[in-house]
Nucleic acid binder design. Structure first.
Lengths: 139, 139
DNA sequence: TTTGCTGCAAATCCTTTGCAGAGGT
DNA sequence: ACCTCTGCAAAGGATTTGCAGCAAA
């Protein structure tokens, strides 16, 4: 289940995973901490962070907003598409924005009022592609 | 040019905007700070942050990664689409993920090696839609 | 002259990390 | 027994904010 074989399924890790799988609210680390504390009152926030990281690296859960350690700014305010390097976080403009023709009714089963969407590509910039061994490439 | 009429075009604000419009590198606040300091050595990082915020609110520039004040986690690791409330940052799952059929060749004029893409919807959740006066709705 | 803006520094928020001891396997 | 994991607390990085003086309008 966990990708790296030298990982241990500790009580804390198990409870974090179980609690996260119970809900569909996409909680933040802090919210997971609050959820887990009902069952493990002495768990630390650091442990929650460490385990969320490990579980998402292992593919058991997923982390939303992958490449956003810091915000970036674009002098061009018009709507266009970006390509982000997953390795160095560099951002470039895409040549064009594909026309999606999305049927909101179909996508949205919720009672959210949809205002728009954002499409982002991710990949490897030439410098990072060169650095990373092609044999062990991981997105 | 600036949306709120009581805003002033100070030297600092002007230089920040000019420098940002010069480049297509999508710099972070810190990088903008470094760029601007060549012309205004005594400018402070706080001023850069304040102005980037004001300029993007005014629509003169844009902030990438709009809704990502903190990371969120999903117990479901499978690939699916999310809808985020622009007001309270809450995230729900979309009913389905539209099939995009994107021609990477066409989108990508760069030498990035594209690995994948991410589509996210944004909108207003029922609670926030109710709170916000429909007459002055701002996305 | 008004009042929004600045530089400075401290505060805040989220996240990561060092350490010594605890606990999976 | 080995070695990963934990709780704790301190450090870290990015961003925000309070304040008194400055400068657009």
């Amino acid at each position: 289940m966990l990708k790296k074989s030298n990982l241990r399924m500790t009580r804390q890790r198990k409870v974090i995973l179980e609690e996260l799988q119970k809900v569909d609210t996409h909680p933040s680390a802090d919210e997971v901490y609050a959820m887990v504390r009902h069952r493990l009152p002495r768990i630390s926030l650091g442990t929650v962070y460490r385990n969320l990281e490990i579980l998402s690296e292992s593919g058991v859960i997923q982390k939303l907003e992958p490449g956003c350690s810091l915000k970036r700014f674009d002098g061009n305010p018009s709507d266009h598409t970006h390509i982000r390097c997953v390795s160095c976080d560099r951002v470039v403009d895409a040549a064009m924005t594909p026309d999606l023709e999305i049927d909101f009714e179909q996508v949205n089963s919720t009672d959210f009022k949809i205002i728009g969407h954002r499409l982002e590509f991710f990949g490897l910039c030439p410098q990072c592609a060169e650095k990373s061994n092609p044999a062990e490439m991981q997105a």
